[in-house]
Amino acid sequence: MGVVLLISFLAPLLVIAVFSVMPQKVFSLLHLPDFSSYKLVFTQGYIKSVVWSFGMALASTVMLFVICWPLAFGMAKVFKGFGLFITIAVVVTLFVSENIRLFGWVLTLMKGGLIEGHLRAWTGLTFEGALYNVPVIVFGLVYAYFPFMLFPLIQGIAMVPDDARQAAADLGASRWQIFYEVDLPLSAPGIVIGSLLSFVLAAGAMAESKLLGGQTVIVIADEIETAFTYGQNWPLGSALSIILILIIGALSIFGINRVNLDLIMGGRRS
């Protein structure tokens, strides 16, 4: 078990870490480290890509939370058979590759596409299509990572005991106070997991910005791919990867330490 973990997971990470300190554009680890890639990252504007990636990931995570909470609440506490229908509907979208689904949105939103085309045919009005801007990228992220927020939230909300909510109401709490005092803290494990999943995935996402966003914004994942392929600069790509890994790793550890994950795995609140 340990050996498998070492070879399949830790070894590649280690290789990337060592590559990130190698001189520019080398393809072997047998060089003296000079950390030049990191200098490049901080001087050549790559930080902007990092900021864009995390900024959009944050925006999409917040929006996902706001959108998914009522739905997850309904599915955990209110709907009975209908909840299963929604679950299947959401899961089925995952059967189709993300790129193809995003192309579907491109065809829907582009000038001459489903929406603009119909509008023009029926009313004669026209607009430039909804593609190639930052909001549509965030929309794409929200769309793509919807299940990753929804299902953990359902789990989290299902852990809130009904009688605790009722007791809070009985003791005088309004709906908002119940949400804030009972629902939020007691479903925290689900919220943290859902937020981490969608944030981490969105921060490393590339297809949304490429397909929906055109070249409006270059995200960090895009930069990494370019560095490894067209740029032929493995050390730069590795350095960017390491920065991404460090930020995401720190966030994950911080988040996971804040909640009791045993609970969501079926452990008892003792």
């Binding site: 005991p161 009688d163 605790a164 009722q166 007791a167 809070a168 109401a169 009985d170 003791l171 005088g172 709490a173 309004s174 005092e181 009972v182 803290p185 007691l186 609140r269």
Partner: peptide, 20 residues
Amino acid sequence: MPANLRPTCMVFQSLALFPH
């Protein structure tokens, strides 16, 4: 009148204490 506006209160069978 909704529960939160009634001047009555109940001790639940499960007690319904807030575990957090």
